[in-house]
Write a protein that binds this DNA or RNA. Structure first.
Lengths: 159, 159
DNA sequence: CCCAGTTTAGTTGCGCACAACTTAATTGCG
DNA sequence: CGCAATTAAGTTGTGCGCAACTAAACTGGG
C-alpha cells in the first residue's frame, strides 16, 4: 500500500505526467475559446496581465515573471505590437534593454479582460478553496522539479 | 474568507493557470533531460509507451489514448519511423487506416526506458500518495474543463 | 583606458499542438 | 445499387517553447 513496486512507479509516473500535460492542454483549450474574442492567445494574455499590472516593463522583466526567454518573448511581443496593444522602445539609459509599454488600446483591453477569470473559474467546476490548494501543490511541484533539473552535472568536467 | 471577491477570482485564476502551465513546462524540462539519451521527446515517449503496451495500434487509437489529432501525430510518428523505432503500414482491411508497429529496435528501447519513471519520481520530490492524489485532482479538473469546453454553443445557429 | 567577459534582445531551427483543409476509402440511406 | 455523408490520415499555416546562436551594448579588472 505504502511501499510501491517498480511497476507502481512506472504506472503512476505515466499517469501524473500525462494528467498534468492533459490538464494544461485542457486549460489552454478553454482559454483559447474565451480569449478568441479578445484576439489574444493564452501566452499573450499572460504577457498582457503583467503589463496591466506594471504599466511598462523591460523584456527581461516580463521574461522573469513568465519564465520565458527572449526566443519566445521577442516574436510574441512583436505580434502584440503588430496588434497595436503595445509599443517597444530601446531604453535610453541602457540601449541593450527594450521597454514594452501599453498603448491606449492595450490598456483599454483590460476592461474586457476582467470577465475572463470568472469564466475560467466556472469552467473548472472546482471550489475556490480546492483551487487554492491545487495551486499550492503545483507550485511546490514546480519548485522541486526546478531544483532537480538544474544540478544535472554537479561539478562535472573539471580535469 | 469563503466568499471570494471579484479581485480574488482575478488573482487565483491567474495563479492556478499559471502554476499549471509552469508545472507542465517544468515536467517537460525534466523529461527532456532524461529522455535525451533515448533520443526521444516527451510526446514521442508517450507514443512509445502506448505502443510498448499494445504492440501495434492504428493512428486513430494512439490519438485517442494521447488525446492528440492526426495533425500532431502524423509528423511525430513519421519522425519515430525515420528513427527506426516503428513502421507504418496501411491496413489491408481498411485502407484509410494506418497501423503503427514497433520495430525490433523500438521494442528493445523499452528496456532502457524502464529507468525513466523512477528518475522522474525522484525529481518531483513528492511522496507517492501525494502524487496519486494530485493525479486524481488533475483528472477531475481536466474532465470539468472538457465538459465546460465542448458545449460552447449549445445548439446555436439554428435559425 | 581598454578589452575580455557579461548582459540583453533578437534570430534560426526544430518539434509540439491545434484549426482548417484535402484526399481517399468506407458506410449507409433512399 | 449509387451517391451523399462519414471516417482516417495527411497537409498547411500559425503560434508557443526551447536550444543554440548572433549582435550590440555595457562592465570591470588589469
Amino acid at each position: 500500500m505504502t511501499t510501491p513496486t517498480e511497476e507502481d512507479f512506472l504506472r503512476l509516473d505515466h499517469m501524473v505526467c500525462f494528467s498534468l500535460h492533459a490538464a494544461s492542454r485542457a486549460f489552454d483549450s478553454v482559454y483559447r475559446v474565451i480569449l478568441k474574442r479578445l484576439g489574444l492567445t493564452y501566452p499573450q494574455y499572460l504577457a498582457m496581465l503583467v503589463l496591466w499590472e506594471h504599466g511598462e516593463l523591460p523584456v527581461k522583466k516580463i521574461g522573469e515573471y513568465l519564465r520565458l526567454d527572449s526566443g519566445t518573448l521577442s516574436p510574441l511581443l512583436k505580434r502584440l505590437e503588430t496588434a497595436g496593444l503595445v509599443r517597444r522602445e530601446r531604453s535610453a539609459a541602457d540601449e541593450r534593454s527594450v521597454t514594452v509599454r501599453l498603448t491606449d488600446e492595450g490598456a483599454a483591453l483590460r476592461e474586457r479582460a476582467l470577465l475572463v477569470p470568472r469564466r475560467i473559474y466556472e469552467a473548472t467546476g472546482i471550489g475556490f478553496d480546492e483551487l487554492r490548494e491545487l495551486h499550492a501543490r503545483l507550485d511546490r511541484l514546480t519548485a522541486a522539479l526546478d531544483s532537480a533539473a538544474l544540478p544535472e552535472e554537479p561539478d562535472a568536467a573539471h580535469r
